[in-house]
């Protein structure tokens, strides 16, 4: 009887020792640490967890970050000019005109699409 109890205790201890690491790994998926490699944190997609960092940095429907579109007007191959083209709503002007929320704004030369008079400069005002 004593031998049976001792054997049972040893079996229980062995089972617990083997099971504990597995339980610890699965206990809290939210607490898992995901390694971030260089380049992943700003939209590049590498490895299984790239999706987590490839999303936009705002709350606008989780749209993917498109660098050329989102940061257009900052030189390089971003040829177009869009007003106030920044990551911050409250920041000021870029591209055409001063881009205040109110007041006069002056555009640049418009596209040559046949809609505009030659040499005109568009003007806009928000009151």
């Amino acid at each position: 009887m004593k031998l049976l109890l001792t054997g049972g205790a040893v079996a229980l201890a062995l089972g617990a020792a083997l099971a504990a690491p597995m339980l610890a790994q699965d206990a809290s998926p939210d607490e898992r640490v995901i390694p971030v490699r260089q380049g992943e944190a700003h939209g590049e997609r590498h490895g299984a967890f790239g999706w987590l960092f490839g999303q936009d940095d705002d709350d606008h429907g989780g749209r993917d970050h498109d660098h050329n579109r989102d940061h257009a007007g900052r030189g390089g191959d971003h040829e177009h000019r869009a007003c106030g083209d920044d990551d911050d709503d409250e920041r000021g002007a870029r591209g055409s005109g001063s881009c205040e929320q109110r007041g006069m704004q002056n555009g640049g030369p418009p596209p040559d699409n046949g809609l505009f008079g030659k040499g005109m400069t568009p003007k806009a005002q928000v009151n």
């Binding site: 257009a72 177009h80 007003c83």
Partner: peptide, 15 residues
């Protein structure tokens, strides 16, 4: 979505 279409003819959004 051609951004060249709006080069020079953009301004602030309107409150």
């Amino acid at each position: 979505g051609d951004m060249n279409e709006i080069s020079g003819i953009t301004g602030a959004s309107v409150g």
